[in-house]
Design a protein around this nucleic acid. Structure first.
Lengths: 193, 193
DNA sequence: CTATTTTTGTATCGATTACTACAAAATAAA
DNA sequence: TTTATTTTGTAGTAATCGATACAAAAATAG
């Protein structure tokens, strides 16, 4: 192929952009922010992301979604997916302050984008519903093989876990304190047992 | 007192501004948005709110806080504050779609303002902690007079309710559906019984 | 009435917003 | 080496951002 070779690694750029979006949200992140953190000039930027800021944000969201897809693949291989999910929640109590304050990129975006951008709102809501489905499936399996005594409808318990997830990402900002979070997480996971 | 009389009712202006901020958040709300919805010219605007956009936002937050303070006063008069709190949660399942999508102004602001504005972040976190305290106090009372069997530390259960509250305000956007929300709310309130 | 004080509307400020135009740079193919 | 193709960096675009300057308007006080 002809032409000057690219100097920027696309995935790396998206990852750097993702971090800024994650911290400040879509609107509060300026193009200048993105250019400085990625190291790109606006020439390369718009050559790479023809859809501009919004396209890059979508790519960042999708990249984040892949992390979730990977986790889901692990669950499918697991004997006891609900335990992996519980471990995931428990691992939050081992994160650092920065991570606590960032919360969840997807939850943040749902909250930010209602009444602002319908596309992004729907896109992120769809991801959360996917997460919810995954939770519900793991719970149903746990109920069937006797690992979970609670026989409440797995759909309800799945929604309980997404609600917990979204709420926890605010609680983490109130208390970026691993001891407090640990107690809280244990108490709420006890429901699913 | 001398001078041209004011034509704008201050509390009314703040209420109108509050609605826009509630929908779109702080950053995405432009001064033009505020001027059109309040009907003010920028002259009156900066004459009334010398701190500009941020001062008005703070006033909107404080006005919202007063609604909470009023509720807290009712709780203090009540024989069974925990039942009032449960009623409050249950009443969410009777709200309209617009209300569901708006979520909670305070939770929204915590999420939006981390890494953007430390003042506003701290201010709104303080409010949530106040709400949490109120929950915990009501739970403790309920445990003492036998209305609540669950003897888990009221501090933990109070945090459980704020976490629920914050999570529910995302779930409402995923499912602005009163039947779904009702089931979810009942299930989560059952913990406190 | 006149003088004083405050609010209001308008016109506008510099700064920042997201985004483009375009030529120089850097490669591969002919 | 020449030509074609693509990326890169820089300069600059119009539009919008939040915020001001200021005079006309509208009241009260004397």
């Amino acid at each position: 192929m002809k032409g000057r070779p690219v100097t920027f690694d696309n995935e790396e750029v998206i990852l750097k952009a993702q971090k800024v979006f994650w911290e400040k949200g879509y609107t509060a992140t300026s193009l200048a922010d993105l250019l400085t953190t990625t190291g790109m000039g606006s020439g390369s930027f718009y050559n790479t992301f023809k859809g501009g800021k919004k396209e890059l944000f979508r790519k960042a969201i999708q990249q984040r979604r892949e992390a979730f897809t990977q986790f889901k693949a692990e669950l499918n291989k697991s004997e006891s997916p609900i335990d992996l999910i519980k471990d995931f929640f428990r691992s939050i109590a081992a994160a650092d302050k920065q991570t606590h304050l960032q919360g969840c990129l997807i939850s943040n975006t749902v909250t930010e984008m209602t009444f602002v951008d319908l596309d992004l709102e729907n896109e992120t809501i769809a991801i959360l519903k996917d997460v919810e489905k995954m939770f519900a499936a793991a719970i149903e399996k746990g109920q069937q093989d006797g690992r979970i005594r609670n026989q409440t409808d797995p759909v309800i318990l799945g929604r309980y876990l997404v609600t917990f997830w979204n709420g926890l990402n605010v609680t983490r900002r109130m208390y970026p304190d691993n001891k407090i979070l640990q107690k809280q997480i244990e108490m709420q996971l006890d429901i699913i047992s």
